[in-house]
Design a protein around this nucleic acid. Structure first.
Lengths: 117, 117
DNA sequence: CGGTATCCTCTCTGATACTG
DNA sequence: CAGTATCAGAGAGGATACCG
């Protein structure tokens, strides 16, 4: 395989950008939540049920952070106050490819590590 | 923009794969370290100097975790015990694209969020 | 349904000092 | 140079109960 290094000269800006990325989508639940919403789960309980092990507290917190970062939108039905819709933003959709890459990586990596043992 | 959702049906395996990925490259320093090594910094001090704010403790710990996950190799020169080479593995190189994507995302995201304020 | 409040634990991270 | 040891603080995450 050729040496396909990331970049010849790193900049401090790159480092910070990486840290930002990790911060925004990092933690245990953010990506699973994005993934869940993207796959058609738009209500709190739907999302909760689709992610094994998550608690209402962590879901609530994570949703707010994702909203702050404009990756999802939260819309309350004015007629039905208990009806809330979470949606993946157009902005976030631009990164579907990246998320898919991460899923691929995770699966591949698991196989690789297990294969070593 | 078309609706380019991630995947039509999510699986529990996908969720776990995402969590694995976040786990392996997550935290504050992993990606910056990978990036640094990939850009030609192969010694402990070199890496340390290239990443603003990192401490020897966190660098040491993160390097070991990356090594456990086969993303880097650690080689001690048998003749010079104080000379250690850290190298990006061929395995890890497969993911250079992903890391670059994350850098791009981070930069884009920052501009976007700042633009909103 | 869609959450919030409280408490608790455990890990991550930082600061500092020290070692072969 | 290449780390380890120790201590301390902050924050992530979990359990449980409760609210409009």
């Amino acid at each position: 395989m050729k040496d396909q290094c990331i970049k010849v000269q790193q900049t401090e800006e790159d480092i910070k950008a990486l840290q930002d990325t990790i911060y925004v989508i990092g933690g245990k639940w953010k990506l699973p939540i994005i993934h869940s919403i993207c796959n058609g789960n738009n209500h709190f309980k739907e999302i909760e049920r689709s992610i094994p092990g998550i608690t209402t507290r962590m879901l609530s917190r994570s949703l707010r952070e994702l909203e702050d970062n404009k990756l999802i939108t939260r819309t309350v039905d004015p007629n039905v106050p208990t009806l809330v819709e979470y949606e993946f933003t157009e902005y976030a959709k631009e990164y579907g490819v990246l998320i898919n890459e991460m899923i691929r990586w995770g699966k591949h990596h698991k196989k690789m590590i297990i294969g070593q043992l």
